[in-house]
């Protein structure tokens, strides 16, 4: 075979047209949603999640199809090709799963994922997702505010940052087995505490109404819509509250290219490519038109004040 054929079915034909064309109908109620979900490709997903719609879903933009959201992923623990996570992520066992919360908190502990889901009010958050590589999606996440968990564990006054860690299980994650790792495993990320407390920052446990597929970071991942996608650490096993700015995987790998903040910013180029524009996945096929990238990915009104007085060229 001369050409690797990524998929056999046109991407646009998989999610029923009406599902992504008519979001209003989709939003009309859980019944409509269940109906739509039943038409989606068969996957070993958990039962549909119960959730509320959030007023913070501040976009009327067309959703990226479930097929594209689940088959075009950067999750280097499963390989560097965009299609590798969908092919290899099934080997990760996501149940049972606990998230260890430790560090500078009054109530550290281990949280079983099922308990976290049961004791949280799940919301649907439709967010834009802008990858540092210059493409974007619109994804209906299901999750809860990161702030809810933070309040439960009661951070001490000295806690200034939140550090996150992805699971490290080479037997279950083919990309972690390589003798020449693409990144230092496990993947680590971090936020300033005030960023983590921001109502837009969520821990997602699902998308398109159902539990997260493995390739999207099951069972629990971070979503910070005003930052580049790589800040959204997947398959989280540990959350630590710390005093000093934690190391993050990509800035450790190439500090001049990826900073700690990684806020979406069309005015600060990646050293090797422009960040002024982006391609929306699923839009236009071969003849996709670039659209301008917005400061803070269009969430400037909500989050810009977190960075007032900071030189965003220096703190990229």
């Amino acid at each position: 075979m001369l050409i690797r054929r990524p998929i056999d079915i046109p991407a646009s034909e998989i999610t029923p047209r009406e599902v992504y064309l008519n979001r209003r109908q989709l939003m009309a109620g859980a019944a409509g949603f269940a109906l739509a979900a039943s038409g989606l490709p068969g996957k070993a997903l958990a039962a549909p999640l119960t959730f509320e719609k959030s007023p913070l879903s501040a976009t009327d933009e067309k959703l990226t199809s479930l097929e594209d959201v689940t088959h075009y992923n950067n999750y280097y623990e499963f390989g560097v090709d965009k299609t590798a996570p969908a092919a290899h992520a099934h080997t990760l066992k996501t149940s049972p799963w606990t998230v260890k919360v430790d560090g500078l908190v009054a109530k550290p502990g281990e949280f079983a994922i099922d308990d976290l889901v049961k004791t949280s009010t799940l919301e649907e958050r439709i967010y834009r997702m802008r990858c540092v590589e210059g493409w974007s999606m619109v994804i209906p996440w299901i999750g809860f505010p990161l702030a809810d968990l933070i309040k439960r564990v009661e951070p001490q006054g000295s806690a200034k940052y939140v550090a996150f860690e992805t699971v490290y299980r080479p037997p279950e994650m083919v990309g972690q087995q390589s003798a020449f790792p693409v990144l230092d495993w496990p993947y680590v990320e971090g936020l300033r505490l005030d960023e983590a407390m921001h109502p837009l920052a969520i821990l997602a446990v699902g998308l398109y109404g159902e539990a997260l597929p493995n390739q999207n970071g099951a069972p629990i991942r971070l979503v910070v819509p005003w930052k580049y996608g790589f800040k959204g650490i997947k398959s989280i096993t540990r959350i630590s509250f710390v005093e000093k700015q934690p190391e993050t995987s990509w800035s450790r790998q190439a500090p001049d290219e990826y900073g700690f903040y990684a806020n979406v910013n069309p005015n600060v180029d990646h050293p090797r490519w422009s960040q002024k524009t982006e391609r929306r996945i699923g839009e236009g096929g071969l003849f996709v038109k670039r659209r301008p990238t917005l400061p803070f990915n269009g969430y400037a009104d909500q989050v810009a004040q977190l960075y007032s007085g900071m030189d965003l060229r220096k703190f990229y």
């Binding site: 990524p6 075009y72 493409w135 699923g282």
Partner: peptide, 14 residues
């Protein structure tokens, strides 16, 4: 494949 939308999610890049 490109014209028939069979080059995956990001056909132009592919």
């Amino acid at each position: 494949l490109g014209v028939n939308d069979q080059l995956g999610a990001d056909p132009m890049r592919y």
